[in-house]
Design a protein around this nucleic acid. Structure first.
Length: 183
DNA sequence: TGCACGATGAAC
DNA sequence: TTCATCGTGCAC
């Protein structure tokens, strides 16, 4: 298991999103190490992407997306669910990758097939917002034995308001994986 | 200071 | 299809 370097995040968001599939999300909390394999993601490309939170510009909430790559952007949605993103590209370019589903690997209880569910199962909440993913307690790593899997491209979920951006295939998941949030 | 509205999930 | 529930962003 090899922790991903800063350079993994400091590049094209679509490329980073696709390569995050199959990687391991690791969170140490309360003396417990929880690990999930990332199987579904969505790319949010920056201020010009009408589906991205950063389309509203630099605000208190979105400032993490404008920050340096390799940090977590965690927010509360619908007043009750948390969503976890990985900030990508150079500082000032407000892009990120939303983690939509993971496959349980270690110490995972409950379902993980959805952005809110995976945060609940891995004990991720807003306290981890802006957390550096090159830290010791919260990071993403490449497994020692990652097999090459076919990737499916689909439109993103729940962003119908984003005009033509809603049609773009910026959702990626591992073909045939049973933990995908929706087909 | 008030208010409309979600990058969701679960129930009906 | 409906609803729970609250932080954020923007209008007043």
């Amino acid at each position: 298991m090899q922790k991903l370097p800063r350079s993994f995040y400091d590049r094209d968001t679509i490329l980073a999103a696709r390569e995050l599939l199959g990687k391991l999300l690791v969170h140490h909390a309360g003396g417990v190490e929880r690990i999930g394999k990332i199987v579904e993601v969505e790319a949010y490309l920056g201020e010009h992407d009408l589906a991205a939170h950063s389309a509203k510009g630099l605000t208190e909430r979105t400032k993490v997306m404008f920050g340096p790559p390799g940090h977590a952007y965690v927010y509360l949605i619908y007043g009750m669910h948390h969503c976890m993103n990985v900030v990508t590209e150079r500082e000032g370019h407000a892009s990120a990758v939303l983690l939509r589903a993971v496959e349980p690997v270690k110490n995972i209880e409950g379902r993980t097939c959805g952005p809110g569910l995976l945060c609940r199962a891995m004990k991720i909440d807003r306290r981890l917002n802006a957390h550096d993913l090159l830290s010791a307690d919260f990071f993403i790593a490449a497994p020692d034995d990652q097999e090459k899997m076919a990737i499916v491209k689909r439109p993103r979920i729940g962003v119908e308001y984003a005009k033509h951006w809603a049609k773009r295939h910026l959702r990626f998941y591992l073909k045939g994986n049973p933990f995908i949030s929706r087909p």
